[in-house]
Design a protein around this nucleic acid. Structure first.
Length: 117
RNA sequence: CGAGUCGGCCGGACGGUCGCGGCACCCUCCAGGUGUCGAGGAAAGUCCGGGCUCCACAGGGCAGGGUGGUCGGUAACACCGACCCGGGGUGACCCGCGGGAAAGUGCCACAGAGAAGAGACCGCUGCCGUUCCGCCCUCGGGCGGGACAGCAGCAAGGGUGAAACGGUGCGGUAAGAGCGCACCAGCGCCCGGGGUGACCCGGGCGGCUCGGCAAACCCCACCCGGAGCAAGGUCAAGAGGGACCGGUCCGCCGGUCCUGCGCAGGCGCUCGAGGGCUGCCCGCCCGAUGCCUGCGGGUAGACCGCACGAGGCCACCGGCAACGGUGGUCCCAGAUGGAUGGCCGUCGCCCGGACCCCGGUCCGGCGCACAGAACCCGGCUUACAGGCCGGCUCGUCCC
């Protein structure tokens, strides 16, 4: 999809594990699933952009935008964390800056410990 | 110059910055570095045709499907070219699911009397009768005209319809009719000429005349085996079982190697289960550590296929053309949770508004199409903001 090979989720097992067991946080344009993992391996991420988002051209443009946004943020995540970002139906018509806002907000919420303070 | 017609092409440009994938080289591999390449005319719809792969060979008949003017082009086609025929246009040119309706069956709504060897509603004509009017009269009647009823004849005219069983004229008749004749149209047959052919041109004869739908069944000619790159192949892994080694609290735990899942039921091993050759029949092939069913469990990874090809460009030659031949030259995406990009700026184009000496300036705009390769080619079809170029035709004006 996206990033350097080492930073991608590449198997269906990875995806279903993160989506099922990870912490979830939603904003209007997207949903973030995050699952902490063992230190030592780099953080990895994957995208889910369904047909609801639009036709092939729209889907690819959306995932490219999300990919570049994700790339900037991946280094800041705790090592071993696995993240799945799901684009919502409205994301197809959203600008990059709007996507960035929602991504930051959702990522922050998903990474916060389950019992804050 | 205006109007039109046909065809070809482009489909944002430049810069900054941060990134991704393939290949080559450097480096011991990874990482990293350098260089280089990286979406479309439709990549789309997946509608045809092929290459390629597997099904033993890719067989016969029936069924089924497809194509449908002719001659070419091609690997092939439902595609392309030229031509023929029919229709439209002054013309360039356009349109066409373009074999057979005289082999058979069927259908032809509504309207209409009648819709295929049909029909008689209005109408036209004759005969007979009733009745009315006019005239003549030797008062018995006669002649002429109208209306109505019956019988018979007709199909010219009206009317219905998308379509009504040839058209015009003359003869003919009670009225008419291809009933007869002339010419024309159509159909069939024959002869001559031209063309590879569809077909065209000319002449003669015939009976007079025959409707449309084949994207209704059907008939004729020709073509078609099936599945598809998740094709197909190599390797790894795996549940279970076995052997060995080590540890042990004697329950077991860990490691290495070999094999490549277990259980139940059924059918079979040349007198053959089952499978393959699309369906059926024939014919044929494979076939025993096998096949089928149920239950439980495991693996869902890597590589090859996979990008040098019916390839692009240029020149010359052959051909009206589609296209072919020869020579030169170039290497041009290859991902696999899926690269080919994100953000910013300048310019260009478009839309709206304002100013303004009709051409510019300024401001605003989430305005700049359709759309993203997935085994590869040849087509078709569909979508598309805006723009460029050329051929030809008609009209007008000037030389």
């Amino acid at each position: 999809m996206v990033l350097p090979k080492a930073s991608r989720l590449r198997t269906a097992t990875d995806f279903s594990e993160v989506v099922r067991r990870g912490r979830r946080a939603s904003r209007s344009l997207l949903t973030v699933h995050a699952l902490p993992g063992a230190a030592g391996v780099p953080a990895r991420a994957g995208l889910v952009v369904s047909k609801a988002v639009g036709n092939s051209v729209v889907r690819h443009r959306t995932s490219r935008r999300l990919r570049h946004l994700l790339l900037d943020r991946l280094a800041a995540l705790p090592a071993g964390t696995r993240v799945v970002v799901r684009a919502s139906a409205q994301s197809g018509s959203a600008s990059s800056s709007a996507l960035a806002g929602d991504l930051d907000a959702a990522l922050g919420a998903a990474l916060r410990p389950r019992t804050p303070r």
